[in-house]
Simulated scan of single mutants.
Amino acid sequence: MPALVQGDTTLKYGIASLVAVLLLLAGIALAGAGHGWMAGAIGCFLLAPVLFLAVANGLGGAPSFRRAVVLLVGVLALGLGVAMATAREGSQYLDRFLQATGNTGLATASAAYFGALLIATLAAARAWPGPRRRR
């Protein structure tokens, strides 16, 4: 399978770094100077290295299917952890954050978490070896 980013691996890691930095910025935005949705912010900070690895694996010439599945499970587990932490700290912080930021806050949280899930899923789909043929 040809690499999605031909030649220089610097571009592959550059794209992965850009995605991770955008996720870190989303985490800062979700934190809201300490008065925002802290569970969501911490989840973004934990999700950034997982997403870096998922992008780097997905853009490579021969992506590892096992690694892609492990990273997809990691993204799902972090999403579940954020949901549980939000329920534990009380959803009033999330409600106040969304009231203060409106659609921008909702778009930031959606892009961060659903984008991470989409990227990890696409990386796993690209690495999927396909159906095995019987001989």
Results as ranks from 00 to 15, higher is better:
residue 110 S to T: 15
residue 92 Q to I: 10
residue 79 G to M: 09
residue 130 G to S: 10
residue 73 V to M: 12
residue 6 Q to I: 15
residue 18 L to G: 12
residue 36 G to S: 11
residue 74 G to F: 06
residue 125 A to L: 11
residue 133 R to P: 07
residue 96 R to F: 13
residue 75 V to H: 00
residue 41 A to C: 04
residue 13 Y to A: 10
residue 51 L to K: 01
residue 95 D to L: 08
residue 103 N to A: 14
residue 132 R to G: 13
residue 82 V to A: 02
residue 67 R to E: 15
residue 14 G to S: 06
residue 4 L to A: 10
residue 25 L to Q: 04
residue 85 A to E: 01
residue 17 S to C: 08
residue 85 A to F: 00
residue 19 V to H: 07
residue 75 V to W: 00
residue 64 S to A: 09
residue 101 T to K: 06
residue 117 L to Y: 06
residue 80 L to N: 03
residue 132 R to P: 07
residue 81 G to L: 11
residue 68 A to R: 02
residue 59 L to P: 00
residue 16 A to M: 01
residue 14 G to L: 08
residue 87 A to M: 14
residue 78 L to A: 01
residue 112 A to K: 00
residue 112 A to F: 02
residue 81 G to Q: 07
residue 65 F to N: 11
residue 123 A to S: 15
residue 121 T to L: 15
residue 106 L to V: 11
residue 5 V to C: 09
residue 52 F to M: 02
residue 11 L to R: 12
residue 128 W to Y: 04
residue 89 E to C: 03
residue 53 L to Y: 02
residue 100 A to N: 12
residue 105 G to S: 07
residue 1 M to V: 13
residue 58 G to C: 08
residue 8 D to I: 10
residue 100 A to W: 06
residue 44 C to K: 03
residue 6 Q to C: 12
residue 127 A to N: 09
residue 1 M to K: 14
residue 129 P to Y: 09
residue 118 L to T: 10
residue 51 L to C: 01
residue 126 R to Y: 11
residue 76 L to S: 08
residue 31 A to I: 09
residue 2 P to C: 11
residue 13 Y to H: 15
residue 30 L to T: 04
residue 46 L to Q: 05
residue 77 A to K: 06
residue 79 G to P: 01
residue 65 F to G: 07
residue 124 A to M: 09
residue 100 A to C: 07
residue 96 R to E: 15
residue 130 G to L: 09
residue 69 V to E: 13
residue 40 G to K: 06
residue 107 A to W: 12
residue 61 G to V: 02
residue 78 L to H: 00
residue 133 R to G: 13
residue 36 G to L: 10
residue 71 L to Q: 05
residue 28 I to V: 15
residue 93 Y to T: 08
residue 17 S to I: 09
residue 117 L to I: 08
residue 12 K to H: 06
residue 127 A to M: 10
residue 28 I to G: 11
residue 94 L to S: 03
residue 48 A to F: 01
residue 112 A to N: 01
residue 43 G to Y: 03
residue 61 G to M: 05
residue 56 A to V: 00
residue 8 D to E: 14
residue 5 V to N: 06
residue 43 G to A: 09
residue 67 R to C: 12
residue 38 M to G: 08
residue 33 A to V: 14
residue 67 R to Y: 13
residue 57 N to E: 00
residue 106 L to S: 13
residue 14 G to H: 06
residue 3 A to Q: 08
residue 133 R to D: 10
residue 59 L to M: 01
residue 74 G to E: 10
residue 90 G to W: 05
residue 11 L to M: 14
residue 120 A to H: 03
residue 82 V to T: 03
residue 10 T to Q: 11
residue 76 L to D: 05
residue 37 W to E: 04
residue 44 C to L: 08
residue 21 V to N: 04
residue 48 A to T: 01
residue 19 V to A: 14
residue 99 Q to E: 15
residue 43 G to V: 04
residue 106 L to F: 11
residue 125 A to V: 06
residue 70 V to I: 13
residue 13 Y to W: 14
residue 9 T to R: 15
residue 69 V to N: 03
residue 53 L to S: 05
residue 56 A to G: 00
